[in-house]
Design a protein around this nucleic acid. Structure first.
Lengths: 152, 152
DNA sequence: GTCAGTGCAAACTTTTTGCAACTAC
DNA sequence: GTAGTTGCAAAAAGTTTGCACTGAC
C-alpha cells in the first residue's frame, strides 16, 4: 500500500519533470522517496537528517530547498508555516486534516472533522482558483491549561 | 469610533500589565497605539517604519519583538505566518476573516464567509482550549491564472 | 558536448540574546 | 533603591545566492 503510493508519486514527478523539460536526477527521486516515508510534518533540517540516516543519500540543503519548491509546484508537497521554520507535508493521498497549535508549548496536533471539511470545500471564492487550504486553531493544549492553573 | 477602540485596548493593556506585575512604559502604549492605527497585516519591519514616521516615537526592534509577544499574550494582537516574515494583526474589535494566499505572487487577500465562520466556531475539540484560528486558502489569484494561461 | 542541477560557502534576512544604561515603581 | 525594560550590537537560525563542478540528456 505504502509502496504503491510511492510508485504513483514517482510517476507523477516523472511526468511533471518531462512536461517542464527538467532533468530526472537521483536526488529528486530520493528526496521524494524520503518525504513519502514521513508521516506528519517535517522541516528542512529534519528532512536533511532523515535523508542521511534512512536513505543513505546525502544531499545539500540547497538542493532540498530547490527540490521542495519543485515538489510543491508539482502538487506533491504542501507547505505550512507554524513556528519559526517552514514545515512541509506530503500531499498525495494524505487525508485532509486540520491543525491545533498550542500557543504556550508550540505543540501541533492534527484532527479531522467532516462537517468542517465540507464547509470549507463548499466555499466559493470569486477571482481565486483555490488549490488547497490550511486551518490552524490556536489555543492551549491540555497540559498547558493544567500548568497555567497550577501557576496562579 | 476608532479613538474609542484605542482607548479600550489601552485600558485592556493597563489591566493586563497590572495583573502581571509589569511596567506601564511609554513604549508599550506607543506600540499599541500604532498597531491599532494599522488596517490589515503588518510585519515588524513595517511597524518599525510606522512608529518612526507617524508616531514619531523611535523604539528598537528588540522592543517591538518583546512588546508584540506581550500583546499577543494579552489577546490584543494575532500572529500570522505567511511568506517569510511573521505577520501580525490587531485582534480587538477586528472582524473575523479568512485569508486567500496566491501561491504564485504571494498576494494575501481577506474575505468573510458567515457559514464558514459558524462551522469553525461550532467545532469542539477535546483536550484543547481554543482561543482563535486562522484559515488560509492557497491557490492562484486572478492575475496569476491569467499569466499562466498566457505563458503556455 | 551542453546546460540544468548540485554542493559548498558566503551572504542575507529575520529573530533572539547578552549586557550596560535607564526608568517606572 | 531595585528590578523590569530598553537599546545596541552581536549571535543565532533559516533560507537564498554565486560559482565551479558534475552528470542527465
Amino acid at each position: 500500500m505504502e509502496e504503491k503510493i510511492k510508485d504513483t508519486v514517482k510517476q507523477i514527478l516523472t511526468e511533471y519533470l518531462q512536461k517542464n523539460g527538467l532533468r530526472k536526477t537521483p536526488e529528486r527521486y530520493a528526496i521524494l522517496e524520503t518525504i513519502y516515508s514521513i508521516r506528519g510534518h517535517f522541516d528542512v533540517d529534519e528532512l536533511y537528517g532523515y535523508m542521511a540516516e534512512k536513505e543513505k543519500f546525502r544531499v545539500s540543503r540547497a538542493t532540498l530547498y530547490n527540490t521542495i519548491v519543485l515538489l510543491i509546484d508539482a502538487g506533491l508537497v504542501i507547505k505550512h508555516q507554524f513556528g519559526n521554520t517552514s514545515q512541509y507535508e506530503r500531499s498525495y493521498n494524505n487525508e485532509t486534516h486540520h491543525h491545533m497549535i498550542c500557543t504556550c508549548c508550540g505543540k501541533v496536533s492534527e484532527f479531522e472533522d467532516e462537517s468542517l471539511k465540507q464547509a470549507i470545500a463548499q466555499t466559493r471564492l470569486k477571482g481565486f482558483h483555490a488549490s488547497h487550504y490550511s486551518l490552524y486553531i490556536y489555543g492551549l493544549c491540555g497540559k498547558c491549561v493544567a500548568a497555567k492553573r497550577k501557576k496562579k
